[in-house]
Design a protein around this nucleic acid. Structure first.
Length: 427
RNA sequence: GGAGGGAUUCCCGAGUGGCUAAAGGGAUCAGACUGUAAAUCUGACGCGCGAGCUUCGGUGGUUCGAAUCCACCUCCCUCCA
């Protein structure tokens, strides 16, 4: 899974298109070349799981670690209580401290699975910024830290500018202070771990440069920042969203199957870029896949390679196997080839499924009960559009009973709505 | 504290007494074409099989009739202090 180390980390990152901005570039390069460095990236608890948007910085930490550097994954127990205003259109609702501390624990566990904590000097560390902020008094904060910040400079930051200038929005003092907290994190990690590099999404540039300045002012430290590009899609839509919302890393929130399918549906125009962003495949290898796809007609390989690689990275070999099993059965195989045990396995693998509550129900009812349609009306609409399939056979009218007789092995019915939404009903 | 502006269906945004389940755009979904891609075209997009029912920040009122008028309340924004 872990590809061979690139000869030069920065060169590799650049050729992958993973570098958006660097602070004092020449010095940064020299710094990187000078030995094993400590770097960090922060992850705020805004939900009970990380999602694929977090994957780029998270995998970047790992890229650095593979290149011999020491990654510090910071969970924002403190910053998560404030809310990062960077490029956000509106003020966010504060979550309760209990909820946030629960999320912190969840995130820690997820972060850990991507890093190596037992590899000697460059073993990873997970920290929580609440540790150094919870006992900070207001006066110490204002005198010791706030004094280093110029409000004039802060309101010039692009990341909060629209909130300040745009009519109809605004920014609370709470969110406005976010930058100071994140800057303090960098200064503190510099002091504690000799951390000299912060990485993050390009939306974090303002916060990162704030930290660079603070580390110098408080500790005379010379530290650096590197930002990763924001993941964009060729059609301009937001990356990482599906019909059912965000794509989570937690298998309980997004099954490995759904996760795999998300990557399978990547547009051609994005697939090779995503291979560079989200996998550890060498650039040359990705280039070879691109050429092969271009030469061949029909379906490209890129999406399936992408789906396999990322699913394995996040859900391991077992998760990938389960996802691939379901995908194979539903999209390429013939359902009648499946054994009874296969169906049971599909259910265990995470194919959405329900157990029928009664022995026989109508097709409309079945569509609603399985969640494939949100209302009877919608269900009828799908039926009249010819969008519904039972065990591979297209349904015409509404008078189709769903019962054991219609089921494979008198037990299983695979409902399909649209091209790629499946549901397993069992009796 | 004062003055003004605003809150519409997922989002943006029209609508200022009946013709409004509410223009238009976006997003989303389905069908066709394909390759589980993109683009394009077609259709759907509150709930109900239907008659119809429930919606326009909240509560009450005026009216035969209200998203539209009145009162109070909540929240947001701008300017002044």
């Amino acid at each position: 899974m872990i590809a061979q180390l690139p000869a030069d980390l920065l060169t590799d990152l650049e050729s992958r298109g993973l570098v958006a901005q660097m602070s004092s570039e020449d010095e940064f390069r020299a710094h990187m070349a000078g030995g094993s460095r400590t770097l960090y990236s922060g992850f705020d608890p805004t939900a009970d799981s990380l999602h694929i948007g977090h994957l780029v910085p998270l995998l970047a930490l790992r890229r650095f670690q593979l290149a011999g550097h020491k990654p510090v994954a910071l969970v924002g127990g403190a910053t998560g209580m404030i809310g990062d205003p960077s490029f956000k259109a509106a003020e966010r609702q504060l979550n309760s401290t209990d909820v946030i501390s629960g999320w912190v624990d969840r995130l820690k566990g997820q972060l850990e699975q991507f890093l190596d904590f037992d590899c000697g000097v460059n073993s990873a560390v997970v920290v929580n910024n609440l540790d150094w902020t919870k006992d900070l008094s207001v006066l110490d904060f204002l005198r010791g830290i706030g004094k280093h910040f110029s409000v004039n400079a802060m309101i010039q930051k692009e990341s909060v500018k629209q909130r300040i200038e745009r009519e109809g929005s605004g920014i609370s003092f709470t969110e406005f202070s976010y930058m100071i907290l994140q800057s303090y994190d960098f200064a503190e990690l510099y002091k504690r771990y000799g951390c000299t590099i912060q990485i993050g999404g390009s939306d974090q540039w303002g916060n990162i440069t704030g930290g660079i300045d603070l580390a110098r002012r408080m500790h005379q430290g010379h530290v650096f920042g590197l930002t990763l590009p924001l993941v964009t899609k060729s059609d301009g839509q937001k990356f990482g969203k599906t019909e059912s919302g965000a794509v989570w890393l937690d298998p309980k929130k997004t099954s490995p199957y759904a996760f795999y399918q998300f990557w399978m549906n990547t547009a051609d125009a994005d697939a090779y870029k995503f291979l560079q962003y989200f996998t550890f495949l060498p650039v040359a290898e990705i280039e070879a896949i691109r050429e092969e796809d271009a030469a061949a007609s029909g379906r490209p390989k890129a999406q399936s390679v992408l789906a396999s690689e990322v699913t394995r990275l996040v859900h391991g070999d077992a998760g990938l196997l389960a996802a691939a099993r379901i995908t194979g059965a539903l999209f390429s195989g013939d359902l009648s080839d499946l054994t009874e045990a296969d169906f049971e396995q599909l259910r265990l693998d995470g194919l959405p499924s329900t157990k029928c509550t009664s022995d026989s129900l109508g097709i409309v009812e079945a569509l609603v009960e399985s969640g494939l349609a949100t209302s009877n009306r919608a269900a009828r609409e799908f039926l009249s559009a010819g969008a519904v399939t039972i065990n591979g056979k297209k349904i015409v009218g509404e008078e189709v009973p769903i019962n054991r007789d219609a089921a494979l092995y008198n037990k299983y019915i695979v409902l399909k709505r649209g091209k790629k939404l499946f549901h397993l009903l069992s009796f």
